[in-house]
């Protein structure tokens, strides 16, 4: 257990170093991108090892307590972001927008009780793992889109225009962001389908409009609306960016807020 905690603290330290370096790089006009990517990969390895040790010790995946859910989401979000960071060089400065969001989650995680949770019998199914996996990919792809939407909004607000000028123009950023949103839509839909299969097996109904299901569905509707609006009316990048942020806020509140008010068996995080 001490090794788990040590590895987690090391990972957080490395993440903070990577994120800080990325932000400083944007502010100072430097490009320490290889170092940032290397630190992200190192942090992911340490963090993944910590999660793996806990999984081995408790006999279940990181999806019961809020600590486990935040920890695994930080890992998955940074994993997907690192893939985007590695694959799409021109958009690497979006790290300055994305990393502070993940820092907030890290701070929250470190304040939480790390004790084990109880694994209900209804959670002992592969469909839960599939449901969670799709959910993490969905949130990760939307986070990458949020990075680009944030840059668009910052530039439109006149904040850091010069520092962010080496990124592609707003129209290209908007186009790329909506590719990630489209991926997110597919994975959110798959998350809902896998969740319905799990719910049917676990509680004898595939959908019951409990708070978590309702807000997941609202997020899905808003995301579908955003994609359809883009295909139909081609709104300006700033409007598109606002819609991306709206989807992310809804998704974030659904993942990490609704579990606190839900009183039904399908509680998500807690």
């Amino acid at each position: 257990m001490e090794r788990e905690a040590l590895l987690l603290w090391l990972a957080v330290g490395v993440y903070v170093a990577a994120g800080s370096l990325a932000i400083v790089g944007v502010v100072m006009g430097k490009r320490p991108e290889r170092t940032v990517l290397g630190l992200l990969v190192l942090g992911l390895a340490l963090h993944g090892l910590s999660i793996g040790l806990r999984w081995e010790r408790l006999g279940h995946g990181p999806y019961l307590t809020m600590f486990e859910i935040l920890s695994s989401n930080i890992w998955s979000l940074l994993f997907i972001f690192s893939l985007a960071y590695w694959r799409f060089r021109p958009i690497r400065p979006i790290a300055a927008v994305v990393v502070p969001l993940v820092f907030i989650m890290m701070g929250w995680m470190l304040l939480l009780n790390r004790g084990p949770g109880h694994l209900p019998a209804t959670y002992n199914t592969i469909w839960l793992a599939i449901h969670i996996l799709f959910g993490k990919v969905f949130l990760g792809t939307v986070l990458v889109a949020v990075g680009m939407a944030g840059v668009i909004l910052l530039r439109r607000a006149g904040v850091g225009v010069q520092k962010l000028s080496r990124l592609p123009d707003d129209r290209r950023l908007d186009d790329l962001a909506y590719r990630f949103m489209a991926l997110g839509f597919i994975f959110e839909t798959l998350m809902l389908i896998a969740g319905a299969i799990w719910a049917q097996n676990a509680w004898g109904r595939y959908w019951s409009w409990d708070p978590l299901e309702t807000w997941s569905f609202i997020t899905w509707v808003v995301l579908a609306f955003a994609l359809h609006l883009r295909a139909t009316l081609k709104p300006a990048p700033r409007r598109g960016a606002v819609l991306i942020l709206t989807v992310f806020v809804l998704a974030f509140l659904t993942f990490f807020g609704v579990p606190f008010i839900s009183k039904v068996p399908h509680q998500g995080a807690i």
Binding site: F88, I91, R172, D175, R179, R230, A231
Partner: peptide, 17 residues
């Protein structure tokens, strides 16, 4: 997405109007 590189110029949204 395969028809055009991910960071190419232009807009790949389907015009369904």
């Amino acid at each position: 997405f395969a028809a055009r590189p991910w960071l190419a110029d232009g807009d790949d949204s389907e015009d369904i109007r």
